[in-house]
Amino acid sequence: MTARRAPKVSPMGAVVMMIASIGSLAAFRSIPALAMYAGLATIALIIQLQNARVAVVMIKWCLPFVVPLLFVHGVMNASYPTAYWLMDVIPWRPTGFRYGVIVSLHFIVIATIAAYWLHTERDDLVDALIRMKFPIWSILFVTQGVAVGAMVERRVSNVYLAQRARGICVGPGILARLRAFPSVLIPAVIGTLLEAESRIPALVSRGFGSSKLAVPPKPFVRIANQLWSGIPILIFALVGLFEFLS
C-alpha cells in the first residue's frame, strides 16, 4: 500500500493564479471587490490542498504587515485629516485608514500568489523548467539555492547552539545577538562554501552540465486538477461581474 500524496498545486495552476491576481490588482478598485477576490482565492487554495495550514501561513505573512499599515495611516500619518479624537488622545483618520485597507488588500492578493507557489509540487516545477528548455545552470540555481538554503539555516542554528554550549554569549539582548552573529555565521558559511566546492568535480564527473537533460514526459494530470487550474480565472470573472454590477 502506498501513502497517499498530499494534494499540491500544479505549476500551471500557480501561473494561472499569478496572471489572474495581477489582473485583479490592475482591474479592481473597490475594497469589497479586492477583499472578495483575496478571500475566495485563499478559500479555493485551502479546499484544493484540503489543509487549513495555508491560512496560518497567510496570517503569518499578512498580520505583521497589515496591522502597522492600518495604524500608521489610520492614526499616525499627519498628512491625512483627523475626523475625531479617541479619548481625546488618539487621532482617527478615516481617509488614511481607507488607504491602509486598500494597500493591505493588495498585499493580501500578492501573498495569495506566493501561497500558491509555496504549495506547488517542486518536482513538477523542475520537470516543467526542463521541458521548457531552461539552461541546466538556471535549474541548478533554483534547486540548489532552495536545498542549500535549508542546509545553511540548519548549520547556523547548530553552530549557534554549539557556541551557547561553550559558554559564548549569544543573547538575550539585541546587542549580544548582533555581536555573536559573526562568530556563528562565519564557520557555517565557510563550511557550506567548501562543501559546495567539493561537490563540483563530483557533478562534472557524472556528466552533469555536459550532456542534455532527459526531458521528462508530461505528467498525467487528473481532470479535477486541470479544473482547479481554471478556478482563479473563474474567481476573477465572478468578482469582475460583482464590481461591474455594483
Partner: peptide, 19 residues
C-alpha cells in the same frame, strides 16, 4: 567545469541570502 563551478557557488550565495 567552470560553468558548474559558477552555478554551484552562485547557488550557495542564493542560499546565503535566503537562509
Amino acid at each position: 567545469m567552470s560553468l558548474m563551478r559558477i552555478s554551484v557557488l552562485a547557488a550557495v550565495c542564493i542560499a546565503l541570502n535566503i537562509g
